[in-house]
Amino acid sequence: MAGKIWVSLLLWLGLGASAQSIPDKAFVWSAINKANAYWQLNNKPELWAFWDVAAYHTGNMEAFAVTGDQSYLAYSEQWASYNKWMGARSKNKQEWKYKYGEKQDYVLFGDWQICFQTYIDLYNIKPEAYKIERAKEVMEYQMSTPGSDYWWWADGLYMVMPVMTKMYKLTGNKLYLDKLHEYFSYANSIMYDQKTGLYYRDAKYVYPKHKSINGKKDFWARGDGWVFAGLAKVLMDLPADDPHRDVYLSKFKGLAKSIVKSQQSEGYWTRSMLDKDHAPGPETSGTAFFTYGLFWGINNGILKEKDYLPAALKGWKYLSEVALQSDGRIGYVQPIGEKAIPGQVVDEKSTAGFGVGAFLLAACELYRFLNYK
């Protein structure tokens, strides 16, 4: 029966592909564990709670949810404990800042708040008040301020939007949803490009103030990947009757439509999405976030399989055959930055925790897709 379902699916999609186009469930399972085991064997959990590390843990928690591997859970628990279940650790609210900063007084900066996603997930597995105490303190203080401009860069939408919906589910405090919409509205006002349906990384990159080497609009793949994946996570937890649900749905669907248009034939997305010559060649983190979002949208009935499954499968083909190395390393991850950089070398040795986290998100969502079938 399963074989007939896959044959029918392939014919319906009109892919003209062989049965090998549909990933084997056992292979996807193996890829999840291979990539995650490599990362954890080569990176201790005692690292800071800033975004680059914390983004990995959002993927690790998905790997735990899919595999049930207790070592994955223990790794994130050890990391959270090392960081005292906090982001930035300043206790003086008068000095808390939210523009870019890596010091301990940038408590309101989203890159220090993404860790709360994992702390909340860990709390939901084993509820203990201390795990979410700092998250509640920080987010409730932030919401008490008159500012709306907390999310001024695309990455921040992944870092913090899911914190808001997770905290709402936990507390029932509707202010989390109200502020989610308020902050998201500000982000849209400065970063969203109506014509393309894509997001600039931040206001510095809005066309024509900034252009790609060929004079085009420059949309950074990882930046739009953060937004696309962040919206998926928001929609996952957002109440069905939220008055602003259609806003998030519209942006998610619009992004999906724009994203598939710029996919390269090899399955990846270039760092500058609309100018492949700006920084040519494959890049994994943006590709993985896009692949995750596409599979998530299909799995949740938001995106039509016939329209989006081919792109999702092509993304996975790149991730599993090019990005995933024989030893489990995830390669071709653009280093920490905020834009596509002409001439920057990104190759099979280029890896980073946030790229591994994105890969795990994509692989886990694909595994769920295969289970649904």
Rank of each mutant, 00 (worst) to 15 (best):
S189R: 00
M191C: 05
Q194V: 09
Q194S: 07
K195V: 15
Y199H: 09
Y199F: 14
R201L: 12
D202M: 04
K204E: 14
Y205L: 12
Y207Q: 13
K209W: 03
H210T: 12
H210P: 04
K211W: 04
S212V: 12
I213N: 08
N214C: 14
N214R: 15
K217Q: 13
F219S: 12
F219Y: 11
A221T: 10
A221N: 06
G223P: 03
D224L: 10
G225F: 03
G225Y: 01
W226A: 14
F228P: 03
G230N: 05
L231I: 11
L231F: 04
L231A: 07
L231E: 04
L235I: 07
A240F: 10
A240H: 09
D241F: 08
D242L: 11
P243I: 15
P243V: 15
R245W: 06
D246I: 15
Y248C: 13
L249S: 06
S250Y: 04
S250M: 11
K251Y: 05
F252Y: 10
F252H: 08
K253W: 08
K253S: 13
L255F: 02
L255T: 03
A256G: 04
A256L: 04
S258Q: 05
S258H: 03
I259N: 02
V260W: 00
V260C: 02
S262V: 14
Q263Y: 04
S265W: 02
E266P: 02
E266C: 05
E266W: 01
T270D: 06
R271P: 05
R271Y: 05
R271Q: 12
S272N: 07
M273P: 03
M273Q: 05
M273L: 12
